Amino acid sequence: MEIAGWIIVIVLFVVGLAGAIYPILPGALAIYAAFFVYGFFISFEPFGFWFWTIQTLIVAALFIADYAVNAWGVKKYGGSKASVIGSTIGIIIGPFVIPAFGLILGPLLGAVIGELIAGSNWSQSLKVGFGAVVGLFSSMIVKIILQAAMIVLFFLWI
């Protein structure tokens, strides 16, 4: 049972880190679930109040940062609320509509369309679209760092 537990934990860690890049995967939640798998298959003993508190705060920070960093990228380049919403929609549906390039084109096109709907010209809309891509990559970096910290803390704790 212990080997099965470790296999599932490792798979969840891989899915979690992949979720930092591919937003449709439940990145932080997969890593968080791995802690429960470890507990059920091996032992909850190493995990105390501080482990769960720190990990939960990191997960909360990841959810907040995911939206906030993307919105920051759009706003930094002069985007409106419509372009933030468009970018967010683009992040979610882009990879499905355009499988190979949707991760980048989704937020870019979503922000551009949102900004055009808000009444901006093409030049400003493209600038905001670029900001959405900057926000996306910044968000990915933040997620990778925080999710890696979750995994490192797990191994330090056990």
Rank of each mutant, 00 (worst) to 15 (best):
S120Y: 02
A148H: 09
L103M: 04
W52F: 15
I113C: 01
V69Y: 02
V112A: 05
P26E: 06
W157E: 13
L126R: 03
S120V: 00
P46R: 13
A61E: 00
M140T: 10
F47E: 14
G19I: 01
G131V: 05
V11C: 00
I144Y: 11
I117Q: 09
A60S: 13
A148Y: 12
F130E: 10
F130H: 08
A61H: 07
M150N: 02
A132I: 04
I54P: 08
W122M: 13
F41K: 10
Y22W: 15
L146Y: 09
A60K: 08
A118M: 04
F101V: 07
L126G: 05
W122V: 12
K75N: 08
S120D: 02
G73D: 07
G135R: 10
G102S: 08
A111S: 05
M140H: 09
S83C: 06
V15F: 07
V69A: 05
G48L: 14
F51Y: 15
F155N: 10
E45K: 15
S80C: 02
L146N: 10
G16A: 04
I141R: 02
F13T: 01
K75G: 09
G73M: 01
I54E: 11
V37F: 09
W122F: 14
V15Y: 05
F63I: 12
E45P: 10
M1C: 06
F41Q: 06
Q147G: 12
G79E: 02
W72F: 00
I141V: 15
E115G: 04
K76T: 02
G106T: 04
G19N: 07
I21E: 08
W72A: 00
F137Y: 13
I10M: 02
K75R: 08
T56F: 15
F51W: 13
S120R: 06
N70Q: 13
G79V: 01
I144Q: 10
I89F: 12
W52S: 14
A132N: 05
L57A: 08
V133R: 00
A20M: 08
F44E: 12
K127H: 09
I21W: 13
S43C: 08
S43H: 11
I3N: 03
I8A: 00
A132M: 07
F130G: 11
F47S: 11
V14M: 07
